[in-house]
């Protein structure tokens, strides 16, 4: 890999984009990724694989951990012909999403990082933000405003 400044990134940054990719809606990564031309060639280090993760909760929210139930997850590892290795874990049974997410993870380590940020990550982030805001605003509209009724003669 080139030693240029444009592909340097921190663990926190990588955690952030991998987390965003994991929670993306069905087909979105592929949709945005198709604007990257030409499609990079790659080989699998781990074919897309569907599995489960046991989700834990905490007793009373903060106490001892317990196993709540599982969720489906798909993972994939691939290597671009230019050498970057991309990892992905995405929610659900979504093999092509996992592959696209691993591709994005690899590209974010390459000289295309800025382009991928603009065409894939930023739109995904905007989608997520829009959904979150939409939900939060609907919730806010169902917030109870109490009116205090003064009763009796006391002043």
């Amino acid at each position: 890999m080139d030693d240029t400044t444009e592909n340097s990134f921190s663990v926190d940054e990588r955690r952030e984009w991998m987390s965003l990719l994991a929670k993306s809606s069905e087909g979105a990564i592929k949709q945005y990724l198709k604007d990257i031309v030409p499609p990079p060639s790659f080989s699998y280090l781990r074919q897309p694989e569907v599995g489960s993760v046991m989700v834990r909760g905490k007793t009373s929210g903060t106490g001892a951990a317990f196993n709540l139930g599982e969720m489906t997850v798909t993972r994939c590892v691939l290597r671009l012909s230019t050498g970057e290795v991309g990892h992905a874990y995405v929610q659900g049974r979504r093999k092509s999403c996992a592959e696209a997410a691993a591709m994005v993870d690899a590209l974010m380590q390459s000289k295309y990082a800025n382009a991928v940020r603009l065409t894939v990550l930023n739109p995904l982030q905007a989608d997520k933000q829009r959904q979150n805001t939409d939900r939060a605003q609907k919730a806010a509209a169902t917030k109870v405003d109490f009116f205090t009724m003064a009763r009796g003669e006391d002043t």
């Binding site: 694989e49 569907v50 599995g51 489960s52 993760v53 046991m54 989700v55 834990r56 909760g57 905490k58 929210g61 951990a65 196993n67 709540l68 599982e70 489906t72 997850v73 993972r75 874990y89």
Partner: peptide, 15 residues
Amino acid sequence: RTTLPRFGYSNAIDT
């Protein structure tokens, strides 16, 4: 669910 490979355990969710 018994047919799925178990990838691991999550950290406890933060409710």
